[in-house]
């Protein structure tokens, strides 16, 4: 993708993606709108500006890899993959239906562009590290990106993986934590406290940046800085809002794993259509 980001164009895409995500989940009747909307700006920047990928060759050996360790956010990923040309967008309307290539959680055997099946939290990250390790050992030029949920960082295996990646000096690896502050049943800080989260990563030997995960220019800038070789893996703690872009979904725990009703969807789409591009 181009080196000079067209931030307004990325913002406009992300706003359209938000609408498609909500439509898909409502049509499916279930899914995770909150964590999809918190992640979509970052996914848009990755796939429409940053990643070295070729949708016509999803198995290209030197492609950048992306692992969605917070697998429940996959509606956002599917929308981006379809828009990028990995598969026909008509599949989006089969989300979660029997026989669909778009499963409730990512399935690498069914979905082009998905490099690792995930679902249970705290483990896709380790697989991403395996990919980064293979790249390092073989002298391949690709980078590996993994997106984790913040609640996911309560899983102990995340920290096994963080320790290992730093020990191996995997500076071809970028972790992005979708720090939306909520988990299934409440605020992360009320369930099991995560803060100071970036400092935890630094203490484990990572380079850490903290950004506004809905500020497209900041996202693009942070991903670009993470490219530079430092001998250390890189984490971007992206401060986000669960349900971002729809006033009555934002920050509402109840929309972690619940589809919008038809009425709610209509209100949400109207809001998104009325919003200025980019701050959707």
């Amino acid at each position: 993708m181009g080196q000079t980001p067209d931030v307004p164009a990325l913002e406009a895409r992300a706003r359209e993606f938000r609408k498609t995500i909500l439509r898909m989940i409502t049509q499916a009747g279930s899914g995770h709108p909150g964590g999809s909307l918190s992640a979509i700006d970052i996914l848009t920047a990755l796939y429409f500006h940053h990643l070295r990928v070729d949708p016509a060759r999803p198995q290209w050996p030197d492609r950048d890899r992306f692992v969605l360790s917070k697998g429940h956010g996959c509606p956002a990923w599917y929308v981006v993959l379809a828009a990028r040309g990995y598969f026909d967008p008509s599949h989006l309307w089969t989300l979660r239906r029997i026989g669909s290539p778009l499963q409730g959680h990512p399935d690498m055997t069914r979905t082009p562009g998905v490099d690792m099946s995930t679902g249970s939290l705290g483990m896709g990250f380790s697989a991403a590290i395996g990919m980064a390790l293979a790249g390092k050992r073989d002298g391949r030029p690709y980078r590996v990106y993994a997106m984790l949920g913040d609640g996911e960082c309560q899983e102990g295996a995340v920290w096994e993986a963080a320790m290992f990646a730093a020990h191996q000096g995997l500076d071809n690896l970028t972790a992005i934590v979708d720090r939306n502050g909520l988990q299934q049943t409440g605020r992360t800080e009320e369930r099991v406290r995560l803060d100071p989260l970036a400092e935890k990563w630094r203490a484990f030997g990572w380079e850490a940046q903290e950004i506004d995960g809905h500020d497209m220019a900041a996202i693009v800038g942070a991903l670009g800085r993470a490219r530079a070789g430092t001998g250390r893996p890189e984490v971007i703690v992206a401060h986000t809002v669960k349900g971002k872009g729809v006033s009555f979904v934002e920050g509402v725990v109840g929309f972690h794993g619940k589809a919008l009703t038809q009425d709610e969807l209509a209100r949400a789409l109207a809001e998104l259509d009325g919003a200025p591009a980019g701050r959707g």
Binding site: M123, S126, A127, I129, A157, F164
Partner: peptide, 23 residues
Amino acid sequence: RFVECGIAEQNMAGIAAGLATCG
């Protein structure tokens, strides 16, 4: 071609999966 994973079997299994996707 040897990977010491330390006392962390969960991460080790995941690393193996990632390595397998890379051939």
